[in-house]
């Protein structure tokens, strides 16, 4: 009986001290990822398999300090740079970055000449494709068992906030996060109700800085409107 009680107390203490992330999300440091790039490949291929993506692509790590990840339209190699790795602390966050890039790589297979000229519309309206990649990233993460809220977390943590997006290749980070929030709310609301990132300092900051945009979305939910929201700076 004493042993049983001791075990019960021990297990309760262990459960209480568990990190505030879901069981699927391993915690790791930039050093660990750099030491073992296998983590990047494993997560990348898990995303491909779980999403039944039958297009080939590869993953690699670069020591450059860009806070970025990129996809080569020529050979469909997805590169994650050391500068961005420094910001990543969970498996969900790494999956978020890779899932976004996978969407670009899938798009590179569309169109004539095996997608050779697919980069042309990306030059004209790049932000449209970034929005699509953000949304697809959410889907890919959910199908592979990752928490899509991590996409907001990594964006708020690592991506800067420019003043205008007219000449930019990406929408403003504040708008991207609001759009992702809306997408998760609409398609996968369970992740916002059972949100292990609720008390995460970066997610808390998102709740703080996105209040105005979330109010706009709340209005849309209230009225049942299907109109696209123009989120604020």
């Amino acid at each position: 009986m004493k042993k049983f009680l001791a075990l019960l107390i021990l297990s309760t203490l262990l459960a209480a001290s568990a990190p505030a992330f879901p069981a699927t999300s391993r915690l790791f440091t930039a050093k660990e990822i750099k030491k073992n790039n296998e983590t990047i490949y494993e997560i990348g291929f898990r995303l491909l398999n779980a999403n039944k993506i039958d297009k080939r692509m590869t993953f690699s790590y670069s020591t450059k300090d860009n806070v970025n990840a990129s996809t080569s339209h020529i050979n469909r190699n997805i590169i994650i740079y050391d500068g961005l790795i420094q910001y990543i602390s969970t498996e969900d966050e790494l999956a978020a970055v890779l899932a976004h890039e996978i969407s670009h790589a899938v798009d590179s297979y569309n169109g004539i000449f095996r997608g050779y000229l697919e980069f042309v519309p990306h030059i004209f309206i790049p932000r449209k494709y970034e929005r699509k990649a953000d949304q697809r990233a959410v889907d890919y993460m959910v199908n592979a068992g990752y928490n899509p809220v991590a996409l907001i977390v990594i964006m708020n943590k690592a991506f800067p906030q420019y003043r205008y997006e007219v000449l930019g290749t990406h929408p403003l980070t504040s708008r991207r996060m609001a759009m992702i929030y809306e997408y998760i709310y609409t398609k996968y609301p369970a992740f916002l109700v059972n949100n292990p990132y609720q008390n995460n300092v970066y997610y808390q900051n998102f709740l703080l800085n996105s209040e105005h945009n979330r109010k706009k979305f709340a209005q849309k939910v209230k009225t049942g409107s299907k109109k696209k929201i123009r989120y604020d700076y």
Binding site: R46, N49, A50, N51, K52, V142, N143, A144, G145, Y188, P189, A190, F191, V193, N194
Partner: peptide, 8 residues
Amino acid sequence: LPMPVPNL
């Protein structure tokens, strides 16, 4: 709100 089942 059921959690989506991943394709693992």
